[in-house]
């Protein structure tokens, strides 16, 4: 395995009963890359995310993060090892405040033993204060500081999307998986999001895998694009190559008769 590969999936297959959602998929993410994962609806893109994060355990194949096998680990262990995600259909903790949504995710990396919170040791207060500070910084970076004490369910749509990103960042990821971050956004919001993704990538030294249907965003941001159709990778290459790829055009527009 090459040194620069941060994440490597080898011959990954996911079967649900008789249905093969993803077949024999192999790819790698190099450190610092921003890769797009596109394909028509039902192509298996979200299934790939679910396998990478441990929600599904692949039927066949292996996934390695920094040369460590992760495809058999439960989701929380994989998150702790450095893969974070956002959801296509926003899944915030709706009844909790914006701050608490982020703080929950921070706790994965700032650990104090449980007896610290029972006996209220100085370490407990120190850690909690540090988390409070980091939460504030993260919220202001994502322009959510004014909504910090509001319940997550009262945010606007765009704010919810940003909070999902904030929450994922709080887990301290090496790899960030964004599942349709621009879904339902207007062109102006999409443009702001594009800038935001570029910013956090720089600031947090992230490797990003992005599912997106908005081609302007994908073409602008991604250095490399993978195309899935019916669970099979049909193309991979630079945005320019993908735009001209015949099989991709067929998959999106249907075969010419």
């Amino acid at each position: 395995m090459s040194e620069t590969n941060l994440l490597e999936a080898k011959c990954v297959t996911m079967n649900f009963g008789g249905l093969t959602a993803v077949a024999n998929l192999s790819f790698e993410l190099k450190k610092g890359e921003l890769v797009g994962l596109i394909g028509p609806n039902g192509a298996g893109k979200t299934t790939v995310f679910n396998m990478l994060t441990g929600v599904y355990s692949p039927s066949f194949g292996t996934i390695h993060l920094e040369d460590e096998l992760i495809s058999k680990l439960p989701p929380y262990r994989i998150t702790q090892k450095g893969i974070a995600r956002t959801f296509q259909n926003i899944r915030l903790f709706n009844q909790l405040s914006v701050t608490d949504n982020v703080r929950i995710a921070f706790h994965t990396r700032k650990l104090y033993p449980i007896y610290n919170s029972i006996f209220l040791t100085p370490n407990f207060f120190k850690q909690e204060r540090a988390i409070a500070d980091d939460t504030k910084a993260l919220l202001s970076l994502l322009h959510l500081e004014e909504r910090a004490e509001d319940k997550a369910c009262n945010l606007s749509y765009g704010q919810m999307r940003r909070l999902e990103i904030a929450r994922a960042l709080a887990t301290g990821p090496k790899v960030l998986l964004l599942d349709e971050p621009a879904a339902g956004m207007n062109p102006q919001e999409t443009e702001e999001l594009t800038a935001l993704i570029a910013l956090i990538r720089e600031k947090f030294d992230l490797t990003i895998l992005l599912i997106e249907h908005d081609m302007t965003l994908v073409m602008k941001l991604c250095e490399r694009i993978m195309v899935l159709d019916y669970g099979i990778q049909i193309a991979s290459g630079t945005p320019l190559e993908i735009r001209q790829n015949k099989r991709v055009i067929e998959a999106y527009l249907g075969e010419e008769v």
């Binding site: 899944r91 903790f93 995710a105």
Partner: peptide, 11 residues
């Protein structure tokens, strides 16, 4: 509130 999302936040 959401078990799956919680586990994906490292819980």
């Amino acid at each position: 509130q959401d078990k799956e999302a919680a586990s994906l936040m490292g819980i």
